[in-house]
Amino acid sequence: MPQMNMVQALNSAMDVMLGRDNSVVVMGQDVGYFGGVFRVTDGLQRKYGEHRVIDMPIAEGGIIATAIGMGVNGLRPVSEIQFADYIYPAFDQVASELARLRYRTAGDYFAPVTVRVPAGGGIRGGQTHSQSPEALFAHICGIKVVMPSNPYDAKGLLISSIEDDDPVIFFEPKRLYNGPFDGDPNKPAIPWSTHPKGEVPDGHYKVPIGQAEIVRPGAEVTVITYGTLVHVAEAAAKASGIDAEIIDLRSIVPLDVETIATSVKKTGRCVIVHEATRFSGFGAELAATLQEECFWHLEAPIERVTGWDTPYPHAFEWEYFPGQARIIAALKKVKAGV
């Protein structure tokens, strides 16, 4: 099977969909001639033409608004916001329009828009190239929110998102574009060819939205995470010697409650890990849900390992980023039950 990094896998998903469905268009800032600042749309305009892969003005609100209009007119737009940190000018169009159109028209109108959004830190991106705003979108009724952690899921989830008639916010952890990352910035980078999920089929396949994956079975503690921190949590579990079951959510909305609750009922202990800030972060929803579903099975309080409640700093990145040491400490704490 071909080896792909996450950039190539995402590119392949759009290539497959542009080839299969004439209504698919790719649009955004620098996505066309140049192929995207992360190369995710490289070569697509040459192959499909400038009416299918469209360069756009620097106007996030305009990009999402025109995507909605195109969706209403029968197209299937895959729009890109260059960084998650720059999605806020489009927030009104996402929250007030894209998410609610089907509901407010009782199904008469909808816009099957996918919004691709590079997100997450660990790249010295400072305040406005590192954010993880998934909780803001998880709170909006009517949009699906996904975040892959590897090339195989990235392609399969992106194809599912494009084919989905509901709008999808598709977060791409840019730290994982070129290889998995265990949280140690001092180690040399590892390519995706070293990882089993770097094997990606050339053609069409789907990873279903709304299904979490147990990436490491275990019996002692459940770790619930997504994106870059899946790999950090795996390394932390290994280093801790604790038999942790690690779940990659993949979909934030809809949430796979069954998989996470079944695991926590089995282990009785849970650590939630995300890069985003803690207060009202998605971890709070996870903790509340598990408290409701698994109360009588819990042997210890649910622990959250997250970014601090500060803007994302430049110089103090590795004090801020939830690395292995903090995850190991949390695993030990919940195992001890104190």
Binding site: I68, G74, L75, E97
Partner: peptide, 23 residues
Amino acid sequence: SVSGNLTTQVPQAVGWAMAAAIK
């Protein structure tokens, strides 16, 4: 559909028109 949020429909109409031109 009329939305309570002012002016949102104006760039949406532009997008609809762009799609007509694309097609």
